[in-house]
Write a protein that binds this DNA or RNA. Structure first.
Lengths: 213, 213
DNA sequence: GTCTATATTGTGATAGAC
DNA sequence: GTCTATCACAATATAGAC
């Protein structure tokens, strides 16, 4: 059996964590690795150490698990971003928001990855609801970008929509390669991505950087 | 039947294009939309306008299609990148490489997306081969980054590995939202992403930008 | 090269005992 | 709340005629 996946299941098997919660976190790890359509209820049950039929005491369908993962991921990140930015008044506020964002993404990597890449597996009704929540999340970021443009913090030769999409580009793909325990932790990666988004990666642009050696 | 998908099939049904090629391009569109595991040979046959069994005159397994898509995508992009950079001697060369890269990605969107996100569906043997090819592709970019650092074009306070990953972050996520016929074409998006990677998105960093109004 | 028909396995989900 | 046993169906793939 896959080691990383069974670890994800083991971590939640301590007392105090409900089976429903274990199903969610174990599924998130499984779905991230094999995809929603590529994961079976048999594998999931095995990772949880129960029989396949026992799953259905806690859930009604496999799709419901995906739905719960998407909702949990989006409500969390909307909450975290909202907390990290009451108002943008300086470039430093923007940097803080990006850092919080990255720390949240890598801290809830399984949930966030599945939400971002497996959303298409939802039933039409659930998809509408989750997409609406994702739009709210993206609008939050777009508002921050737009506000920063008005304040002269971000360039305004590009529409806020595209500056927002470029920022999400820079942050989101991280889910495909970041591994906890590597030589960068979430905070450090957040700092790096924020500095590239704000100042770029060219040598010239870093000469005047705050804290540059 | 889904309109975008049947269009993708129709575009290839003109004379002169072999059924094998039609299977590849139609599968790439289907797999991008529904995922490899989420797509069935029934849907594929229907999009092609043939019976499911007829597919097996051209292919041996469904997985073989995925394999061909991954190989085609990677050999193409390795070739394109190699052509676009004989040697990096200025920031403008880097900009050219990024632009070529983006144009190639969005021009072969279906193939490239499937290669990037559905690779895990390959058999172990095929996966080893495809991952080796992907590593070659990433090494190409890493070499360019590293060379640029030596020349003082890119900042050298971060390891080439991470500058390469940040660049791929910025470029790759594009596959999830770019749609041809929108208000940005591939070239324009390439310019935008190159300028953000090199100079950042902050207002300050754009004041001295070449061509800024 | 495509067809009809079918084999075979894997899938999500349920019935009902404990 | 978990179990054994099983259902109903969808999946990939094959056989053999045309």
């Amino acid at each position: 059996m896959n080691k990383a996946l069974s670890n994800a299941a083991d971590e939640t098997s301590a007392t105090g964590i409900s089976t429903s919660e274990r199903i969610l976190s174990t599924s998130a790890a499984l779905f991230r690795e094999k995809g929603y359509a590529g994961s079976t209820t048999r594998e999931l049950a095995e990772l949880l150490g129960i029989r396949k039929a026992s799953l259905y005491h806690h859930i009604e369908t496999k799709e419901e698990i995906l739905y719960q993962i998407c909702i949990a991921s989006l409500t969390r990140i909307i909450d975290e971003i909202s907390k990290s930015i009451t108002e943008v008044v300086s470039q430093e506020d923007l940097r803080t928001m990006i850092r919080s964002h990255v720390v949240e993404i890598v801290g809830t990597r399984d949930f966030h990855s599945v939400m971002l890449t497996e959303m298409r597996g939802l039933t039409p009704d659930h998809l509408v609801e989750v997409v609406a929540l994702r739009d709210r999340y993206e609008q939050l970021i777009r508002d921050v970008v737009s506000q920063s443009q008005s304040l002269g913090i971000l360039r305004d030769d590009v529409a806020a929509k595209y500056l927002m999409l470029c920022l999400l580009n820079l942050l989101n793909w991280t889910i495909f390669w970041f591994k906890p325990g590597g030589d960068l932790d979430g905070e450090e990666l957040g700092d790096l991505l924020a500095s590239i988004y704000l100042e770029g990666a060219s040598q010239m642009s870093t000469l005047g950087r705050v804290g540059a050696s």
